[in-house]
Design a protein around this nucleic acid. Structure first.
Lengths: 251, 251
DNA sequence: CCAATACAATACCAAAAAAATACCATTTAC
DNA sequence: GTAAATGGTATTTTTTTGGTATTGTATTGG
């Protein structure tokens, strides 16, 4: 959890005359969220702690938080805490340095949307068993989506996650990474394999290109710190419609 | 077995205010494992012993251990003990950048060699003028090579360098970068564009593949810290013979 | 001025997580 | 086989968290 003093400058609250206390508090909190001082999924300090720290009543704190919850910036959990909400994006994690699909689409001014191709619990394919290190009895949750920019199909995303991390695959819109989130954003390593391939007929049809045209295949594996594999994502991008930009430093 | 006092500094647990007890315990244990104070395969002290030593409940110890087991860092054996797990999968070597052609080939045990396709000083093409930011009077050194692994053509590399950085284009036998670094040991930032394409007839012939098969196109621009562009490299890899691995850490 | 409203403080309620207690099951050593 | 040591589990208590009702206080509008 972020320290109170780092997210709430007291002087901003004590400047008087400019309006109600709770409004200033709300603005300060909103600023902390947007600036990243409070990360996604991170817990806000307890209402009582904020109240003590700022020497104001808890109800006042509450009123400020109320409005941010109303706006969808925060989420309350009775008995647990108040947390910074996550944006709607779900299955895919932003590729750290490679620009993400949505980012790039937004930069081009395209609207993005997704169509589900597959979603549910399955017995792992031989491929998945090998990559995820599973035995025969295991289960994986599979999420496949067609991603579109301005209603043109651009990519197919197939994610396989160890079932134990996904209690209910139909709720995934919000909580795929919840198992990891609870542990407060412990680092997860991903390895990406980037390669080119000729698109097979089935995928070509989905993407609306002719069979055999070039596709960019990106495969990502996410590990726990221990090295245990939790997730396997295989994406296929249309070669003619998309490319990736990575910035890196050479020795 | 390691002594309790050597693996668990009590003061770290007794520092109060920063969160739940079991979290601090978990962090301490994880640290002990990663630091090597607890070796692979070694037994963790019994839960009751840890509890007594730290003057906390055994269930609290259990909760901390639970999460490390969940992560795969520890393994429990009912009636026997809890042990430090052996790493599940060998995480591929930490690369903060895309592996280079020669590196990767060497790792696969392939012998590499190159054939020159073009080498010399030229007036810049419109493309190069734009990308390198050149005027009409400038000169560029161009190096085009066919790269082979075990005598199979794998990639075409086309590099354009500002002539001033390459006194004699015929002496560039080894790495371009070593030549550049000698003049300037400072780091160079590069932007890569990665995309897939269908290989055109001329290039297909060089690479020994059929026209239209998938190719991985990587375009790299190298800058000086000042922002000045020094190099432009366009590489075309056979999609069926090569892929790239990048490792990155997600927040 | 007085009523209506918004703001803030106090006190108490309910849900969830954290921690402690007591007891059960499995393995190992003898 | 038995006993000691180990991890496994169910239950309860305590603490922490958000939720709500009530009351007091300032601001505003007629």
């Amino acid at each position: 959890m972020a320290a109170l003093s780092t997210i709430l400058p007291l002087d901003a609250l004590q400047a008087h005359g400019t309006g109600p206390l709770y409004v200033k508090l709300r603005q300060s909190l909103e600023k902390a969220i947007r600036s990243g001082a409070l990360q996604q999924g991170e817990a806000l300090p307890a209402e009582r702690d904020i109240a003590d720290y700022a020497s104001i009543s808890r109800v006042t704190v509450r009123k400020a938080v109320d409005e941010l919850v109303q706006d969808g910036l925060l989420v309350r959990r009775h008995g647990s805490g108040t947390f910074v909400a996550k944006p709607v994006s779900k299955v895919e994690q932003p590729l750290s340095r490679l620009t993400s699909f949505t980012e790039d689409m937004a930069r081009r001014g395209l609207t993005t949307r997704s169509e589900w191709l597959e979603r549910g619990l399955f017995a792992p394919s031989p491929d998945e068993m090998m990559m995820l290190g599973l035995g025969p009895g295991a289960l994986v949750a599979r999420f496949a989506r067609l991603r579109l920019g301005d209603d043109n199909p651009l990519a197919i995303e197939r994610a396989s996650v160890l079932a134990e991390y996904v209690p209910d695959p139909n709720v995934v819109t919000t909580s795929l990474y919840s198992a990891l989130e609870k542990r407060n954003a412990r680092p997860v390593r991903a390895i990406q394999r980037i390669s080119a391939c000729n698109i097979k007929s089935h995928d070509a049809e989905l993407l609306g290109v002719s069979e055999g045209s070039a596709g960019l295949s990106i495969q990502r594996i996410s590990y726990l710190p221990s090295g245990k594999v939790v997730e396997l994502t295989r994406s296929l991008y249309r070669g003619d419609a998309y490319d990736f930009v990575a910035e890196l430093t050479l020795g």
